[in-house]
């Protein structure tokens, strides 16, 4: 899409990032949070890719591509680790499955407990 210009991709990347941050703060379910982090990551990668092609017509800069590849590897590992941890959570808390915590939409739950001490 030569007529779109790089700005629209840049803005889309930033929008994805902001959406991810918003979901991370608003959601409490671990799976939703993992997805939110992945959306944030995709936004960052889109920004990287757009910046690689910032000179119109020229060959795209390969360095950001390499960085995005590295970033994807890191992001896959992070997702795996988060899923493994989320999987261990229900048995440890005595519940049968992962649950929303509707009472604490934004703030971390232990903080209240700690302040109640």
């Amino acid at each position: 899409m030569p007529d779109a210009g790089p700005e629209i991709y840049l803005l889309a990347g930033v929008a994805l990032f902001v959406t991810g941050v918003d979901s991370l703060l608003a959601q409490s379910h671990p799976l939703r949070r993992i997805m939110a982090l992945n959306v944030m990551g995709s936004g960052v990668f889109l920004v990287f890719i757009t910046l690689a092609a910032r000179t119109p017509g020229a060959v795209p800069d390969p360095v950001p591509h390499a960085m995005v590849l590295t970033g994807i590897v890191v992001s896959v590992c992070a997702t795996g680790l988060a899923l493994a941890l989320a999987d261990r959570l229900p048995p440890a808390t005595g519940k049968t499955r992962l649950e929303h915590r509707p009472d604490t939409p934004n703030s971390p739950p232990d903080r209240r407990k700690e302040e109640g001490e």
Partner: peptide
Amino acid sequence: ALTAAMRYLWVSLAASLFYLLGVALVYG
């Protein structure tokens, strides 16, 4: 410990992505 680890992971991953977005802008 698991709840603390989980929360630590959220903060850590989100913070890293903020840093990475900064790196992208710097490279640009």
